[in-house]
Amino acid sequence: MTILPVPLSTLQPGEKSKVIQLDVKGLLRRRILDLGIVPGTVLTCIGKAPAGDPIAYLVRDTVIALRSEDASLIYIDSAAR
């Protein structure tokens, strides 16, 4: 089975997948790590704001909202959806 990384921002509400890799830089990277978004973490997309952005994700029993361009720097496993 090959793992195909796709950006987290492509995850649609209701879908669920695993983080493969973080391409986020600097402070944001730290923050995202501290919230427990690390390779292997399971994320569920809960919903989008009325304007389509930001997007809310369920991470380790908490809900975290990210802007889509930040979410697009987090890669998830497309097969695990």
Binding site: L28, R31, I32, L35, P54, A56, T62, V63, I64, A65, L66, R67, D70
Partner: peptide
């Protein structure tokens, strides 16, 4: 604009 990381509490 930088980034937004916002927790939505229950």
């Amino acid at each position: 604009p930088s980034s937004l990381v916002l927790e939505l509490p229950p």
